[in-house]
Design a protein around this nucleic acid. Structure first.
Lengths: 335, 335
DNA sequence: CTGAAAGCGCTAACAC
DNA sequence: GTGTTAGCGCTTTCAG
């Protein structure tokens, strides 16, 4: 059943059918009704490929993240898909891992698929270790379709970034820890992404602003595996810390396990905060205070901006949108 | 840059270029090389829409799950995407929730998008509460494209199901509990899906086979929220149980929290098992023994079968593939 | 307000 | 081994 069949049944030309499908105003209400009825009866739906060929768009958005099995990204994917679907778009989801080569491959693959826009979830796409040129492939992609980053920032034409205030979040938490009497805050981290660097910067700034030294051995970079974090902490007897600021809940739970293993009282002897406010934080014992970085809000901002861009609205949309984080206090902090 | 441009630059016809693109054997190696070089130079990639129009396929697989932010489904999405990508397919991901109406809507939406195959993740698509007709929309979809279910089963032409042996898993665990001296096993569940029913059946069969009564009040259906599970258990003082068989790790963690709140010794006074072997199970305290239901393996089976079907291979592929589960023993069991 | 016809870029059957 | 050509189903001028 194609447009010709409908045209014939309705006794009009295919042009008219097409106009009805696209709800063009230049068709009389009467014929619209008639054609619509016939389409309904015959369960006609336009062929998306033919449509794509003509319009050069299939109303699909490409989403790339390193790994959807990560709860933060899974949550992002969920919210993005839900909202985009409401706007009539579908999502192609890709998991690129974190190797530069694969990220680039996926981006070009999606570009070839003629997506209408690209969403990059996670700050790994903003270039690691401060090397800004590693994000050039993103800027290039942005020459073809608008690119939206979630929780990362790079400067570039047609790239729109929404991220949480990781700097402010760690600055505040570290400050509160210090003001509550903590002097040796362990910064526990698992990456060198844009976001991780922001968190580090907030932590360091808080130390400085409170007249505390920034010590290299209190910045610990480890793999994000609960047991391995616990074991590393157990082994590193040289480390001397009275609090832990972790950049991810998994790391923080590792610290909790460490404290429990050493029979340290939480939060009295060791105060701990995590990041992402994930399911892990209410699962562990004691339950973890965690910084909520508001994925859902980032997704909302992103999709709204995207629609504004795709619809070519007048007023320019912000290329940088920051949303504040919020510490959800549970049992591992005493401030 | 389209096929005509390349043809002109290479001094051949578009047919030849097309043949080169599709690596047809009926082109001389020499011209292949030449045409390829030109395509390379000009960064040519065939237009997927035009291609789709001709072939009626864009090499995309539709994946529907109730909610990717759930760790089981996120993990499934991750593995499926990874494997399908290796086979040259992309994935359109949709989260349908669990309302019948939305499931049907998403299925027809994807069908209109001319996906090459459909994957349904989660047993909710197999019809709830044993009403098999609720799965008719799946059978209908299967008239258009092959349908693959992960962790659910319905009978139907062109629908291929891979699921874990939930029945066997709960049968075994319940049996072991009983043989270890437990007499009152609480069955903790949050749904009436195909999979949940299998688990229940396994549990009940184990009780019967060991001469134990199947008690209605030891089958508890609750919402899958850790704290609410704990609170319900705390409130239900009438409930008398010495072990918990939960159909999801989240539920099991709720039971752990309950035991901890009542200062019950785990596993001595309360032995607990979860399901899915998720991150939660190593996060809680004590760490949870959990049934690993092998998502990755299900995904592998599914994608392999799908390729066999899509390639129209000779030998028929199984419509029912069951993989055994495995109890990962941690600290909440003593058998 | 409606119709005719020219693409959109590619595939594949058919010639040579 | 290569070229010609007719679709694939829709959108969109351009006429009327």
């Amino acid at each position: 059943m194609n447009i010709y069949d409908i045209a014939e049944l309705a006794g009009v030309s295919i042009a008219t059918v097409s106009r009805v499908v696209n709800d063009s105003p230049r068709v009389s209400e009467k014929t619209k009704q008639r054609v619509r009825a016939i389409m309904e009866e015959n369960g006609y739906t336009p062929n998306v490929f033919a449509r794509g060929l003509g319009l050069d768009s299939m109303k699909t958005i490409g989403i790339i993240c390193p790994d959807v099995s990560d709860s933060y990204m899974a949550s992002a994917a969920f919210h993005l898909e839900g909202r985009l679907h409401e706007y009539g778009y579908d999502c192609i989801l890709c998991c690129s891992g974190s190797r530069q080569e694969n990220k680039e491959k996926y981006v070009s693959l999606l570009l070839n698929k003629r997506i209408d826009a690209l969403i990059l979830v996670g700050s790994t796409y903003a270039g690691e270790g401060g090397d800004d040129r590693k994000a050039d492939y993103v800027r290039n992609a942005a020459k073809t379709v608008p690119v939206f980053m979630i929780n990362g920032y790079i400067k570039g034409d047609h790239v729109y970034c929404a991220f949480s205030d990781d700097y402010g979040a760690t600055y505040d938490v570290a400050s509160q820890m210090i003001e509550a009497g903590r002097r040796r805050i362990l910064f526990l981290c698992d990456s060198h992404s844009y976001s991780a660097n922001q968190k580090l910067a907030g932590y360091e700034a808080a130390l400085k602003d409170h007249g505390l030294p920034v010590l290299g051995d209190l910045k610990l970079y480890v793999k994000n595996r609960i047991h391995s974090v616990r074991d590393i902490l157990l082994e590193r007897r040289d480390l001397n810390f009275d609090s832990v600021l972790a950049t991810d809940d998994g790391l923080a739970v590792g610290a909790i396990k460490y404290a429990n293993a050493k029979l340290l009282k939480i939060p009295e002897e060791l105060c701990i905060t995590g990041f992402n406010n994930s399911a892990l934080s209410i699962c562990c014992d004691p339950e973890l205070s965690s910084i909520d970085n508001k994925v859902e809000e980032l997704c909302a901002i992103t999709t709204d901006q995207m629609m504004a861009v795709l619809r070519g609205e007048e007023k320019p949309v912000a290329q940088k949108s920051q949303v504040p984080c919020r510490l959800v206090k549970r049992c591992t902090t005493d401030f």
